[in-house]
Each structure stands twice: as C-alpha cells, then as structure tokens.
C-alpha cells in the first residue's frame, strides 16, 4: 500500500487483445497496465476467459488481435520459450518421471549450464521456497501436494523470469493448506521482488495476496483496483456479489423498493449494503431503518451471521460476537444501516 503512492514503472501492458474460439469470444479487447514488482490478480468465474488471457500473456497462445508490450517492447509474436516469463500451471505440470532436482534444474539444463552449477542453483531455489535439501534426489511423485507446489514454484523461479504467471495453482488444495500457501506466496513475492500475475476464481484468495485485482467477466475486465477499492467501492452488482453475500436494494421513485422506505438523494438504481453494515437500530441512530424478523443465526467464529425477513425480503447481516449476544431467531425489531456504508450502483 505504501508503494502505491509513488508510481512504479510499468513492466507489462496489453492493448486491446482479443481471442475467439469459434463463436465464443474468450478474451474481448483487454487492455491492462501492470507495474514492475506488482502482485496483480485476475479474478473471474469459470469460463470468464481468465485462463485464456494468462496463456496469451505467457506466450502459450496467440491473440487474434491486439499487442503485448514487455517494458515497451512488442512481444506479441514471441513464443513462450523465448519470453523472460514463466508459468505455474493449475496441474503444476511437474515432470513426473524425474526427481525434484531434475525438475528444478530443467530450464538451466536447456540453457546448457554445467551439472554442478545447476545443482547449486537448484539447491538455492529450494531454500527460497523452503524445501529441505534432502528432497533434491526424491522423485516428484513421492512428494505431498504442498511439497509439489513448492517444487513447481522453485522450478519457475530457477529460470529467473521477470514475470511469474500463476494459473489457479492452489485450486486443487484443501482449505487449510491453501491458507498457509497463500501467505507463503505473498511472502515469496515480497522476498523475490518479481512481478506476479495470478489467476483465480476466488476473490477471497485474491484479497489476501494482491496489490491490485482485476475482475473478469465474459472476456472483459469490468473493474480493476486495490483489494480495498474492490471491496468498498464495487462498480457493478456482479463485482458486489462476487465476494460472498450482499444485500442489494432497488431504488425506485425515491424509495428503496424492497423495504418501502424513503431513499432521498440516491440517484443510482441500486444500493448495495455489505452484511457487516446492517445492525440493530432500536435506538433510532441509523440513516435507514426498517422492521425485520430474525429467521436464522449462523455462528462464524468471531462473527455471527443472521438471516432477516423484512416484510418478505430476505436480508443477511453479520455482527461481531459481542453485538450478536442476545439476538435469537424469532426476534422482531428495528434494523438499519448508514448512508456512508451503502454503495450506489448504476448496474
């Protein structure tokens, strides 16, 4: 966040790249600017074209139109093996008939580096990704999921790329290990100082790691910004809904249609309120107030989620454990939210 104030030089930019498969326009006129050393994440549901986009950026696929610049130099026609970039695949694509060391050394072997130098380099990379030395001679098929993840990272780093691409490398990993690896990934990014371009379908995962996030839908980037901006200021209902549950109200004739209460000075057709901004308002201190019945409560650890029924409209609220004490299903009361916490949306 600190670096954001001083503009970093750009490393990779695309100008209007598109790619179609038959009738389907997988990537549609995408232009992005990525800064040197940035952790940039592209988030989208499956079929949004994010994998195609990253394959084009890595040089594994050619765009139908548009161009890609690396530090100002056009690399659109440069194949993957001649680009100073490297990809970590969703399947990891480890060379299954080889050892950990042989996997990591592969790029150096292709360059004709001598065996001893290769080995030394591989061991250094293993240290970077915190893989014990004794794994060097082990077949990759005998490594656990987390260890294979590290081997793939070390193999990519060993080619000393300027940009590392990640195509959902954590999607096949169980929740707990994924949380650990997310933190490690962020840490690795900081230690190596390289540019990371990461693809995922999980906005939650993106929030944890990224400097900037781009939301992709049907082949186009619909919003780009810091995790904070994406969360607090979504520009469309799609983005607002992408990160878990939200309350969306329709504004019609100066009223919130679902609640039947006045909504003066709200020009936009929709109003979005995150669950954590809905709260009991019995003392009348909220800008917007309505009566609602609690229908269900779900313990989420540090918070409790409540499902509300406001005159036939289902709403969701989340309160910290202290504030949630004493509220139970069946309670009917005043709930509300403040104008400052509600995000007006045009779409």
């Amino acid at each position: 966040m600190v670096e954001a104030s001083e503009p970093r030089p750009g490393i990779l930019s695309t100008h209007g790249i598109s790619k179609s498969f038959g009738e389907l326009r997988a990537v549609d006129d995408v232009s992005i600017e990525i800064a040197d050393g940035e952790f940039f994440t592209i988030v989208g549901p499956s079929g949004s074209g994010k994998s195609t986009l990253v394959r084009i950026l890595a040089g594994l696929d050619r765009p139908d139109s548009g161009n890609i610049l690396l530090r100002g130099e056009d690399i659109t026609a440069t194949p993957a093996n001649a680009r100073p970039t490297c990809m970590v695949f969703q399947s990891l694509a480890l060379f299954t008939h080889r050892t950990v060391g042989e996997n990591i050394e592969f790029s150096q072997k292709m360059k004709g580096v001598a065996r001893d130098a290769r080995r030394e380099h591989a061991l250094r990379m293993m240290e970077v990704v915190r893989l014990p030395r004794e794994y060097y001679a082990r077949p990759v098929t005998q490594c656990s999921g987390g260890e294979q993840q590290r081997v793939a990272l070390a193999r990519a780093l060993a080619s000393d790329p300027e940009i590392l691409f990640f195509d959902e490398p954590l999607s096949a990993i169980d929740y707990r290990l994924r949380k650990i690896l997310e933190v490690e990934m962020k840490d690795l990014h900081r230690r190596t100082g390289k540019t990371f371009i990461y693809i995922t379908h999980s906005l939650e995962e993106a929030m944890v790691m990224s400097d900037r996030i781009a939301i992709m839908r049907s082949g186009t980037l619909i919003q780009t910004g810091t995790p904070h901006e994406i969360y607090r200021r979504p520009e469309s209902r799609f983005v607002a809904e992408f990160m878990g549950e939200v309350n969306i109200f329709t504004v019609a004739d100066g009223r919130l249609a679902e609640l039947g209460i006045a909504a003066a000075q709200i020009e936009a057709p929709y109003l979005v309120v995150r669950p954590e901004y809905l709260r009991p308002a019995g003392n009348g201190d909220a800008d917007f107030r309505f009566r609602a019945e609690v229908t269900n409560d779900y313990m989420l650890g540090s918070r409790t989620q409540f499902h509300l029924d406001a005159g036939g409209t289902s709403l969701v609220a989340e309160l910290p454990a202290l504030a949630a004490a004493g509220i139970a299903p069946g309670d009917v009361g005043e709930w509300g939210f403040d104008r400052a916490d509600a995000v007006p949306l045009a779409d």
């Binding site: 993957a80 060379f95 592969f106 790029s107 292709m110």
Partner: peptide, 21 residues
Amino acid sequence: DVAQEEAAFDLGATRLQVFRE
C-alpha cells in the same frame, strides 16, 4: 499431463528438446 510439454516449452526448451526430454 500434457501440460508437462507446455511447461517444458515455457521453461525455454525447443520443440525438439520437449520431445526428447
């Protein structure tokens, strides 16, 4: 996993090296 071939290519191998390795 066919992605192995792409990974090798991405790591700087030529088409011939991908086939051999």
